[in-house]
Design a protein around this nucleic acid. Structure first.
Length: 304
DNA sequence: AGCCAGGAGATTT
DNA sequence: AAATCTCATGGC
């Protein structure tokens, strides 16, 4: 991806099929989201990777360039740090992917043809940090999204770090080192069930020791192998594994097929009076091969 | 007030 | 293997 540096900002070239507003709409789907803030036509986020900590504001003036503005003098000094920030943002918005083949398929697909019109230019918004992606998936298991966002906010505000800008706090996700030290009871006051607490602490320990890492999963060229690696871990079933493979590791064929949001979107799109069975879903989505992750993400946006 | 929610693990069939 | 049960808690 091409990018150019300025004094307090960096411009990143945007790919074909990108609409900033439709991406921002996804980002502000819940008022309790605490990992970034959408203000007017921009989004502000604290990027915290290792020792690097920068507060950025993203905006798009015309649709071919994403501007990364560094707030409050947090501009990274070294070229390596700048590259890290650009890399993070490219991953976040999936800027390096050519999604034209997906659009060619989707515009002919009964389930997707309305979705690609409704949210044209939406990218599969990622969660580049593996620990964050795993925790978010576990938090979201079997509870409604509203409650999941509320839980995440309480978790982040209890164990994360923040910096203040314009009297607002911008948070970084709790580190696996911090969470690995906890006991399940420590989280009982934030409405986390004991079981979810155990899952998250277990994941934190695996990541702290390096037994589980993003690099290790990415090196598995066959995503079915990465899926198996994940589902062997307590607390990670097929839904969570595929959710993380989709939103963090970006395997395009990752497919959380039992996702209740996907099921309800299919029911909605096909105007069904009941939920589709698993076999029906497999039949309806047979044309998605190789783009299951994008298709699922687009289906999620259908009902909003 | 009761069903549902961007499930997983354990138990039973 | 596949179906069923249990777990937990808030939203609407």
């Amino acid at each position: 991806m091409q990018w150019t540096e300025h004094n307090q900002s960096i411009d990143i070239e945007l790919p074909d099929i990108f609409n900033f507003k439709n991406n921002l709409d996804y980002l502000q789907r819940d008022p309790n989201e605490c990992m970034y803030e959408v203000i007017e036509n921009t989004v502000i986020k604290l990027i915290h990777i290792g020792d690097l900590q920068v507060l950025v504001q993203l905006s798009v003036n015309n649709e071919d360039c994403l501007t990364v503005h560094f707030l409050r003098g947090t501009a990274p000094k070294s070229a390596a740090d700048k590259a890290t920030v650009v890399q993070y943002i490219c991953e976040w918005f999936d800027l390096d992917r050519d999604i034209r083949p997906f659009y060619n398929m989707a515009s002919q697909d009964d389930l997707l043809k309305d979705a690609v019109k409704k949210v044209q230019g939406l990218r599969l918004i990622g969660i580049p940090d593996l620990f964050e992606a795993l925790c978010w998936a576990v938090l979201g298991q079997q509870i409604n999204l509203k409650f999941a966002y509320s839980l995440k906010r309480q978790f982040v505000e209890k164990y994360g770090e923040s910096i203040t800008y314009n009297d607002k706090k911008y948070w970084s996700f709790p580190s696996c080192e911090t969470i690995a030290e906890l006991n399940a009871e420590d989280m009982s006051d934030i409405k986390m069930t004991a079981r979810k607490s155990e899952y998250i602490i277990g994941l934190a320990k695996l990541m702290t020791t390096g037994e589980l890492s993003k690099d290790k999963l990415l090196k598995m060229s066959d995503f079915k192998r990465a899926e198996k690696e994940l589902t062997h871990i307590r607390g990670i079933g097929p839904w969570t594994a595929n959710y993380v493979l989709m939103r963090c590791l970006r395997f395009p064929a990752a497919f959380p097929i039992n996702d209740i949001g996907l099921i309800n979107s299919i029911k909605y799109q096909l105007n069904m009076d009941r939920k589709p069975t698993k076999q029906e879903i497999l039949n309806y989505t047979a044309g998605w091969k190789g783009w299951e992750s994008y298709a699922t993400f687009y289906m999620w946006r259908l009902r909003y």
